[in-house]
C-alpha cells in the first residue's frame, strides 16, 4: 500500500508525542485516519474528529482540523446536531468500547438506525484503560481485568454486529496489526454516505495485554495476528473452534438513504 505524502497535514505535530503508552494501538488507528483523509484529499476545515472519554478520547488533541471532545458516551448524540446543521462536514467519531458499547450504546444504535452521515472508528481495546483497566462490554468472557481478577463473568458484546443490525450502511472490523485492511476499511467507511462503522481491535499492553499475559506491544500485535481470522475462514469453523478466534472483515456495505435525505423528502412543503 502506498503512502499519501500529505497525511502529515492532518496531524498537529506540535502536540506530539501523544500521551498513549508505548505499543498502544490508538496511534496506529489515528494514523490510518490521517492516511485516508490525505488520500481522499479532504480540506481541513471540512473535517471534524469527535471523541468521547478515555484513552481514545484524547485523539482530537492531535489533529490539525476541527475537534470535539464530548461527555462520555454522548458523542454521537452531539454529532447528530452537528451533522444536520453542517451536512458537508465529514464527521469522524473516534470512540472507545465504553463510548460505543456501554454508556453510549443507546446513542450508537440510534445514530446507526437514523443512518446519520458519520464515520465511527471504534477503538476496541477490550477494557477501560484510562481508569485503570476495568472490563468493558466488549471484554471477552473469562478475560482478566482489574474488576475481574478471576475472569470476566459476562459474555462479550459484538458492537459491529449490533450496528449492522441497527441499519448502518457500512460495517467492518479488523485489528491494528492488519494495517492494510485497517487503512482500507477506514477509507471505504469515509467514502460511504450514511452511517459507517469500523471496529478496530486495538492493543492495550498496559492493561489488557499485561493482565492477560499476552505481553507488550509487539506481543499483542502477534496475538492479533494469531487470534483473528477473516470472516469466511471463521465461518467454516466448528462452534467449538470458534471459541478460540475472533473474526474480522466486512459485515455490511449497502446504500440506504442517509438521515437528512429521508428527512427532507418528508418535510417538503
Amino acid at each position: 500500500m502506498d503512502i499519501p505524502v500529505r497525511y502529515g497535514d492532518y496531524i498537529d505535530w506540535d502536540q506530539l508525542p501523544h500521551l498513549w503508552c508505548p505499543g498502544c494501538g490508538n496511534g496506529i488507528a489515528l494514523k490510518g485516519v490521517a492516511l485516508a483523509l490525505a488520500e481522499l484529499n479532504i480540506p481541513l476545515h471540512k473535517l471534524l474528529l469527535a471523541t468521547g472519554i478515555g484513552c481514545s478520547g484524547r485523539a482530537g488533541n492531535y489533529v490539525s482540523f476541527h475537534s470535539f471532545d464530548g461527555t462520555h458516551g454522548r458523542t454521537l448524540a452531539f454529532c447528530t446536531g452537528i451533522n444536520v446543521t453542517q451536512p458537508d462536514l465529514k464527521i469522524i467519531a473516534f470512540l472507545g468500547d465504553g463510548d460505543c458499547g456501554a454508556i453510549g450504546g443507546n446513542h450508537l444504535l440510534h445514530a446507526a438506525r437514523r443512518n446519520l452521515n458519520i464515520t465511527v472508528i471504534e477503538i476496541n481495546n477490550f477494557n477501560y484503560a484510562m481508569t485503570g483497566g476495568q472490563f468493558s462490554p466488549t471484554t471477552p468472557l473469562s478475560s482478566i481485568t482489574s474488576t475481574s481478577r478471576k475472569g470476566k463473568a459476562e459474555y462479550a458484546m459484538d458492537t459491529a454486529s449490533l450496528v449492522a443490525e441497527a441499519g448502518a450502511n457500512y460495517v467492518a472490523s479488523t485489528t491494528v496489526y492488519h494495517t492494510s485492511q485497517l487503512n482500507n476499511f477506514i477509507k471505504e467507511a469515509l467514502l460511504t454516505r450514511g452511517f459507517s462503522f469500523v471496529e478496530v481491535m486495538s492493543s492495550c499492553p498496559t492493561y489488557y495485554g499485561r493482565y492477560n499475559h499476552i505481553g507488550d506491544g509487539p506481543e499483542m500485535m502477534k496475538w492479533f495476528k494469531e487470534k483473528t481470522l477473516p470472516r469466511d475462514k471463521y465461518e467454516k469453523l466448528s462452534l467449538e473452534e470458534k471459541q478460540n478466534y475472533i473474526e474480522r472483515g466486512k459485515l455490511v456495505q449497502r446504500n440506504r438513504e442517509d438521515f437528512l435525505t429521508t428527512y427532507k423528502k418528508r418535510r417538503k412543503k
Binding site: 497525511y7 502529515g8 496531524i11 496511534g27 496506529i28 492516511l35 491494528v176 485497517l182 500485535m221
Partner: peptide
C-alpha cells in the same frame, strides 16, 4: 512494504520528505 510505517503507533517513522 511500508508496514513499519503503518504500524508505528507514535508517528515516529516518517517519510524522508515529510512532514
Amino acid at each position: 512494504c511500508n508496514l513499519c510505517f503503518f504500524r508505528c503507533p507514535d508517528f515516529a517513522i516518517q517519510l524522508e520528505v515529510s512532514p
